[in-house]
Design a protein around this nucleic acid. Structure first.
Lengths: 207, 207
DNA sequence: GCTTTTACATTCAGTGTTGTATGCAAGGAC
DNA sequence: GTCCTTGCATACAACACTGAATGTAAAAGC
């Protein structure tokens, strides 16, 4: 068959990643063979082995397309809404994150990492999740310590516990939604619950 | 080889489940073959196929050994601590649950369901988790509605939202711990956070 | 315009796994 | 004591998947 131009090759790579995403999501990582993935992208396994070393390499490349560190979300949010309090920044960052998660690609890949893959070769999905969670928690802690120093928090709760609770709430919202994404909008449900939780720990009602 | 008595057969079955538990936990469900499981229990695949129809059947049998409905935890707890308020019942039920999770068997099996298995044949780990979560949430909602009617909750939070938040907190605690069970005790961390969250929603300080 | 890469397709060998079929020795009921 | 059944072990057939080797035609470089 005809060889493709450099741009075509890039498109092929993306198509393979798309196909992997769909099949991993539908049948799970272990149950999706490279042959099936290639066929789903109208290619052969040769193409897969050209662009990726093996299944694990393909997998990590797929993950790379959907990274979203919390501080990125917040700075993106605060670009649109400047001069906000730490608590409002958290609320906005979460809402931006929830909105991203509703995009099919983000939903699918996160669903794959959480529910459709297990340890294989040198990939451990828990580590992937751990880095995401740690990043999020550290950001929350920073914002809540800021809020505490500005006297925005109720005096009977320390910022560390507040961060732990809020991070747990976020984790819960995330996992509850991901277990059945069709059931409800994580943006609506999540925003509501984050707001409620922030109201519980903040001294004054949120703006 | 010698045929075993009925009690021996039962022991064999348990040994196979134990072996599956260990291997699933170590290498993941997909990466553990029935041959490996049988060998790990000093048996052959014939024993596996005698006691279980296939891998999926073995898997569900393994799950069956660690079920713990929330109301069971609470009734077990309130047998030891009678005449408690709904909020204290929640606290106690959670603590009993956390303590169970720290037992190796419970920890391993839950870790397997959450992190070491994906959809295979007709098994969907999400459904298993969904039933657990729904059961827990319904129980929480009942207790919190009781608490609300007894005037124990802050007036600015409705029992439904409180239940959603608390369930999210529990989910978060669970997943955060399960991602790295060695890092901390879920009993200590979880009890602390549940207490803090209950304090946030309750009108008076908890006894 | 020629050569060298690139971007795949095709083929092949090897391995691991599943399900089933069969064998067999001891248990259990009478 | 016998006969059927149980509780496995062993053997077999079929398949699916991986990784690597090889083939190849067109793009890129000069």
């Amino acid at each position: 068959m005809a060889r493709r131009t450099k741009a075509d090759a890039k498109a092929t790579r993306e198509a393979l990643l798309d196909a992997a995403e769909e099949l991993f999501f539908q049948r799970g990582v272990a149950c999706s063979s490279l042959e099936q993935i290639a066929r789903h992208a109208s290619m052969t396994r040769g193409a897969v082995y050209w662009h990726f070393r093996n299944k694990a390499d393909l997998f990590t490349a797929m993950i790379e397309r959907v990274r979203m560190p919390f501080h990125e979300l917040v700075s993106e949010a605060s670009a649109a809404h400047p001069h906000t309090s730490p608590l409002a920044a958290i609320q906005l960052g979460c809402e931006y994150g929830f909105q991203r998660l509703e995009k099919p690609r983000y939903m699918r890949v996160h669903a794959i990492v959480v529910h459709r893959c297990e340890v294989f070769s040198d990939i451990d999905p828990r580590e992937i999740q751990n880095t995401m969670v740690r990043d999020c928690f550290n950001a929350l802690k920073d914002y809540l310590e800021d809020a505490s120093q500005q006297g925005l928090l109720k005096p009977d709760i320390d910022p560390l516990t507040a961060a732990l609770l809020l991070q747990a709430v976020l984790s819960g919202i995330f996992h509850n939604w991901l277990r059945d994404p069709q059931a409800h909008s994580i943006y609506e449900q999540g925003s509501k619950l984050v707001k409620a939780q922030l109201a519980l720990i903040s001294l004054k009602p949120l703006s």
